[in-house]
Structure formats: C-alpha cells, structure tokens
Design a binder for these strands. Structure first.
Lengths: 168, 168
DNA sequence: GAAGCAATTGAGACTCAGTCTCAACGAAAC
DNA sequence: GTTTCGTTGAGACTGAGTCTCAATTGCTTC
C-alpha cells in the first residue's frame, strides 16, 4: 500500500474523533503532502495542487495544515526564515535541523544524548516539556570547503528553495 | 556608569568601523533597549519610544535593530510565535529558552553539556556551526501544579506580553 | 427522497510584521 | 558655500497567514 494511504487512514481516524469529516480536498492535500519528501511552505503546497489541477483555496490549505499539525501527522518547523515550514512526520521520528547559511541545505539529525540532556535540564528547572525545536545554523561541509564565509546569524538566505508564490 | 552607556559605546565603535554614524535616534533606541530586561518585539519598542516622547519612525527602528543584531549587541530569537522577538545581549552570554505554553513565561537557561554535545553532533556531520536556537515548549512548574493541560505544540499563546501594536 | 442541520468550502477582504522608496535633512569634506 | 553621503520619516508596499460570509456538501432523520 502506498505511503500516503496509511497517513490518510490515520488522518481520517483523527477527524472522526473530532467529529470532522475527511473531504476530498483534505484527502488530496494529505496525498500531496506525503509525496513531498522535504520541508515545504504553505504556498508551495497551494502551487503544487494547482499544478496537479486540484482546485483548492488558500484558506482550506491553511485550515487543513492546522488539523494535520494537531493530528501529529505534520510538524511545523522554523528553518531560520521568518515564516513557517512544514514537514510530514510519517513513521520517522523526531529530529532537529542543521541549516547551511550559504547554500540553504537542511540536514536532519537525531541525537539521543542531546534529547536526554534536554530532559535533564527541564527536570532541573521543574519544566514539563512537550515539544522542542532546535536549529543549528552554520556551513555545511561542501560550502566550508568552497571557502564560503558564514552569513550573519540574523538573516538566512534560503537559496534554491521556495519562491513559488502564487499571489500576483 | 549606567548599563546602557557601555552598550552605546560598543555600538558607536561598531558603527564607526562600518563608516556609519551614531545618531540621536540610534542612541535613544539603544538606551531604550538596554532598559528593557526582557524579550521585546519591534513594535513594542516603537510604542515605548512614543510613550517616552521620542519621535522615531518604524523604518528607523527596524533599521537600527538590524544594525544592533549585526553588531552582536542584540539577538533575534524565535519564541514560538510567528514573528521575531529580540533581546539585548549585554554582558550575559548565550542562552536558550523554555517557553510555557499555558502562561507564556519564558525561562532562560544555559547548559554547557548541551552546547558541547551540539558541537559533537556538528563535528560528526562535518558541519561548522555559527549559531543555534533552541526552544523547549511545555509547562512551567506553576502551571503544571495548577493542572494546566499542555497546549498543542503548533500554537503558543503569549499571554501578558506584547499586544501593543501601534498601527490602527 | 425531502428537510434539516452542521461541517466545509472558496473568494476575497483583511491583518500585521517587516521592507522599500523617496524626498528632505544634516554633518563632514572639499 | 557647495558637494557628498549617510540618515530620517511618512507612507506605500509585500507576503504569510487569518477571517468572513454566502454557497455547498454530506450526513441524519423523518
């Protein structure tokens, strides 16, 4: 069975629990999201839907993304830019991001020791964590070799990604 | 000497290096920023300046914040909301944030072991870090005792902060 | 199958943080 | 005094995300 089928089933369950319905629009969105194997932006999703001749409004895209985040199927991440990116969760577990400020590459990683230490810090502060978000900005191996200079940490250019806005 | 005097001196040096000038507007902004001992938003700063009868435009506030970030005197942070917050750096070193999703409290912490492990992860991935950003969302001690439920991780309400926009 | 009803949708207006433009200003250099 | 060049403010603009509202869809229940 294709990857997105399981996601659609899980989303359908979630919606039912909430007294909501799995409409054709929502299904098409999940299908599209689970065919993107990378971080994406809301507008990018809208653009791809139009490309596939699926008629859907911006409001529905945002509304569905919110539901997907609530259901745990999609995660909202900051990648150094001033708006959100999303990524589907699928079977793959939690991870954090290394972001190259020169070429925009995003490298995912997961480190159990880091996670453990975060839990310890929270315990010390009597804080009950539910979620965290770690981005490390810097230079990837290729860019460092190419002699790129690290960018100012305040602004990250995301080259070769996004930039597919639909609104004129 | 008051705290902001040292900051103004450092900013002045930075500006001179860049062939720029320390104007009265820039000085007033630094003075204001270093009198705020918390995270602030750009519009909040603008609002406080008006309250103090310092005439300054939004453009200048944003332009100066950019310069301050470049100079290292101010840091731009994500605190779970979809726009930036800023914090002055003063003498105090790098830290990360625990953010309570119930009451909006922001707890700063610094943990050397966490920092060290991050460097190790970067090394393993041949990544040269310049900067990182870690937010842990969850419940602070008081809210947990009060029996608050953790909020959905996708949206963080920031109660008792900000909400002082100037534009009608 | 019609009626009732709530969830859903799309179009487009709206919001709001942040950016850009441009004319006017002002301090130092010639 | 004139030129130069950084700086400023006002306000137009941008772009992501939200909201509104009328129209539609898809159940239930008779």
């Amino acid at each position: 069975m294709p990857k997105h089928a399981a996601a659609i089933a899980r989303f359908s369950d979630f919606l039912q629990q909430q007294g909501l319905k799995l409409t054709s629009e929502r299904e098409a969105l999940v299908r599209e999201i689970f065919s993107i194997h990378y971080h994406f932006e809301a507008d990018e999703l809208l653009f791809k839907m139009k490309q596939n001749n699926v008629k859907i409004s911006r409001a529905t895209v945002y509304r569905t993304l919110e539901l997907l985040v609530k259901s745990g199927l999609v995660r909202r991440v900051h990648l150094g830019e001033d708006h959100y990116h999303y990524e589907h969760v699928a079977g793959n577990s939690h991870h954090d991001h290394l972001i190259c400020t020169a070429c925009g590459a995003v490298i995912e990683f997961h480190d159990e020791e880091l996670e453990r230490r975060q839990r310890e810090v929270c315990e010390k502060k009597k804080f009950t964590p539910t979620f965290h978000n770690l981005q490390i900005l810097g230079l990837c191996d290729a860019c460092r070799r190419r002699g790129e200079q690290p960018d100012a940490p305040d602004r990250v250019k995301m080259i070769g990604q996004g930039a597919m806005s639909l609104r004129k």
